[in-house]
């Protein structure tokens, strides 16, 4: 006999399914097919597709902080910028090997996440938003004033990056950069998925939902938020480092408010707290920005703004949220029929 809807037993498999986690499905397969198809079918767009991959990594990092932990930030670019400068300076002064450059960037951004997190994460709501913004602005001004080290507003350049694994040289057409970025994206997605599905990911969702109650479950909320902020920062640092390695330039714009705002728009477009939202939102945002700028170089922001308003109006939970709701509706109809 069929069980009533929403009624389950207490067996281990049933309890496991009640603990909702990310499971691999058709979405990952479609995305991999799309990334492979772009390489072969749209070779002229590889630099743009590389930007998409980097933006996805950056958006995933923000999704961990905001979507899972509820950390409201308008200064997430600080991690991207620190990662970019760390990777650039590392290549300029230490070693040009790219993978170790990513690790150095992740460590630098992660440490900044711990140090700044201990201070800013004591605040909530608008105060937290302003503190994260202030943090990013301070680092931006610091980078600007340290011209001898960072290149100031000219940016940091003049470094080279060795071939990946000593084999794959970065070419003019951006093929290696694209494959390299997509591979790092896959690794970052897997890391984010492990975090989201873990005990710690569950704790982060609990803190987002009701931080006061989490304290009274015996969870040191501030410590957990700092850890999440550091992990998120480290992943954002990897995104910044990737950008620095494939463009061979790190500018002050990597620390700017505009970038923090853009990645937040990406998540709102795609859907917060789903990981997939970061992927969909990044694709839509970067491709739309590019197309809108090509159609009308003077008023492209107006077009982009209009589309964002439309999306938020029609899909308040983002594109991934809308899609998920539609899927559930269809499943409901199937059950009824």
């Amino acid at each position: 006999m069929r069980k009533p809807e929403n009624t389950i037993g207490t067996s281990v498999p049933e309890m496991r399914s009640a603990l909702r986690t990310h499971r691999f499905g058709w979405f990952e397969i479609v995305m991999l097919v799309v990334f492979v198809a772009v390489y072969y079918l749209l070779p002229g767009y590889l630099p743009l597709a590389t930007q998409v991959a980097i933006m996805i990594i950056f958006a995933i990092s923000l999704d961990l902080a905001l979507g899972y932990g509820g950390i409201e930030t308008l200064g997430h670019a600080v991690f991207y910028g620190i990662g970019g400068y760390a990777a650039g300076l590392y290549a300029l002064h230490v070693w040009q090997e790219p993978i170790s450059g990513l690790l150095v960037a992740a460590i630098a951004a992660g440490i900044f996440g711990i140090v700044s997190g201990v201070v800013v994460l004591r605040a909530k709501g608008l105060t937290l938003v302003m503190l994260t913004l202030a943090c990013a602005t301070m680092v931006h001004e610091f980078a600007n004033s340290m011209r001898a080290v960072t290149g100031g507003d000219d940016g940091l350049s003049g470094y080279r990056i060795d071939p990946v694994f000593g084999l794959f040289r970065f070419d003019l057409f951006g093929r290696t950069a694209y494959i390299y970025s997509v591979c790092i994206l896959v690794v970052v997605f897997l890391i984010a998925r492990v975090v989201a599905n873990s005990n710690f990911g569950l704790t982060a969702r609990g803190i987002r939902s009701n931080a006061q109650r989490m304290q009274l479950l015996g969870v040191p909320v501030l410590n957990r938020l700092v850890l999440l902020y550091a992990i998120s920062g480290a992943l954002a640092g990897i995104a910044g480092a990737l950008s620095a390695q494939v463009t061979k330039l790190v500018g002050l714009n990597t620390l700017a408010f505009t970038l923090s705002g853009n990645v937040l728009i990406v998540l709102i477009l795609g859907g917060i707290g789903r990981l997939y939202g970061a992927v969909i939102g990044s694709i839509v945002f970067v491709v739309l920005s590019d197309r809108a700028a090509a159609i009308d170089p003077f008023n492209w922001l107006f077009i982009l703004g209009g589309l964002i308003v439309l999306t938020v109006w029609l899909a308040p939970d983002g594109i991934a949220g809308r899609f998920s709701a539609l899927t559930q509706q269809l499943r409901g109809r199937e059950r009824k029929s």
Partner: peptide
């Protein structure tokens, strides 16, 4: 998930990043 939050917290396992809850 609500009950899991409490149990994981009681076990001192709430910060484990590599343990998949499901």
């Amino acid at each position: 998930e609500n009950v899991a939050l409490a149990m994981v917290a009681h076990d001192g396992a709430d910060a484990r990043v590599l343990d998949n809850i499901s």
